[in-house]
């Protein structure tokens, strides 16, 4: 992971938001008004973006390769869904419950994940993901099994805004949650704690020598990431008012990796850009046979890894550097 120094350079935790960053968020607000027919898709993109940011925290910053991140997303989705099915439909507290569910699963499994090398981590995360999927599948009396959890009905947000079919509330609600959690993630990665994570990513053996408790740091970020992934899952359950078994499935974890690698790891915005590109492409190509979509997806992955390391944002940075070098 030899990314360019420019985007990775440490900033102060309270660093000002730069102009491109502000423009990015204004664009997300503008999209609400510019594409009124696509607000449902928009809210899905925002949720996937949030999910990708949580993976970026552990993968891009702490260097933990995970193939089972859907476990936390699914835990959050089922927590939020089950809460409403059993009579409590208030959205914001539902999200808190979803985050708590993600955090509990994340903290419990973090001890297994922080030990071992990449391959062992890959297997353990994959195994935990598959295990939860099987558990949800078998516990059909709680989760509804393959039929999914039906009967999710949300109360109005703040008692005022109903969740409508056009996705108006869903979009703005998702955007607000995404922004709050993104700001939190941004603050975390720019803090001394975040810097120590990068140190662990670059060389986990030297970090103890400068007094950094590697295992504890990794457990902390893994739990934070899992909690935020749980919130993302809760958001999906609330805005779609349905929880299917696929929230825990392996393809969800794999697609998430693709989203993040496509956008660019270790820069937070990569997950958001990747989610937008991936989901819009999927939407545009959805009338294609799904088999062909999978083929092009595979080809895209191979091409990105071979020729465009750093993803879309990595490419943008390279272009910027080149133009700056040319103007000098």
């Amino acid at each position: 992971m030899t990314s360019a120094p420019a985007p990775d350079a440490p900033r102060l935790p309270g660093a000002r938001w730069s102009a491109p960053e502000i423009a990015f968020w204004l664009l997300a607000v503008a999209a609400f008004f510019a594409f009124p027919a696509y607000r449902v898709l928009g809210s899905q993109i925002l949720i996937t973006g949030l999910f990708a940011v949580t993976l970026d925290l552990i993968l891009g910053y702490a260097g933990i390769v995970s193939l089972g991140h859907a476990a936390f997303f699914g835990a959050g989705a089922y927590a939020a869904g089950l809460l409403t099915v059993h009579g409590w439909g208030e959205p914001v507290s539902g999200l808190v419950a979803a985050g708590a569910a993600g955090a509990i699963v994340g903290y419990a499994t973090s001890f297994l994940v922080v030990r071992g090398a990449d391959l062992a981590r890959l297997m353990v995360t994959l195994g935990i993901g598959l295990l939860l999927y099987e558990a949800a599948n078998k516990a059909a009396f709680v989760t509804g099994g393959v039929d999914g959890l039906s009967g999710v009905s949300m109360w109005k947000l703040f008692g005022v805004f109903p969740f409508d079919l056009a996705g108006n509330t869903a979009y703005l609600y998702s955007l607000a949650v995404l922004f709050v959690l993104f700001a939190l993630a941004r603050r975390i990665v720019n803090s001394p704690f975040g810097l120590s994570l990068r140190g662990i990513r670059e060389n986990g053996r030297r970090m103890p020598a400068i007094g950094s408790p590697v295992a504890r740091r990794l457990i902390a970020i893994y739990t934070i990431s899992a909690a935020m992934a749980g919130v993302a899952g809760g958001l999906l359950a609330q805005t779609t008012q349905f929880v299917g078994l696929d929230v825990l499935s392996f393809p969800r974890s794999a697609d998430l990796m693709i989203v993040l690698v496509l956008g660019g790891t270790g820069r937070l915005y990569g997950g958001l850009v990747g989610a937008a590109v991936f989901m819009i492409a999927h939407h545009l190509l959805s009338d294609l046979n799904p088999v062909y979509w999978q083929f092009w997806l595979g080809l895209l992955l191979v091409v990105v890894v071979m020729f465009a390391r750093g993803g879309i944002l990595g490419g943008v940075d390279a272009l910027r550097r080149r133009s700056r070098g040319a103007s000098r």
């Binding site: 391959l119 062909y292 999978q294 083929f295 895209l300 990105v304």
Partner: peptide, 30 residues
Amino acid sequence: LYQRLYRATHLEQVMFSIGLVFMAVAGATW
């Protein structure tokens, strides 16, 4: 393809080989 990625990170190897799997699955279905 593979020999270019021996020095790449594990993440890149995972992504690359998942990409190959997707292509193989789609190709075999076709």
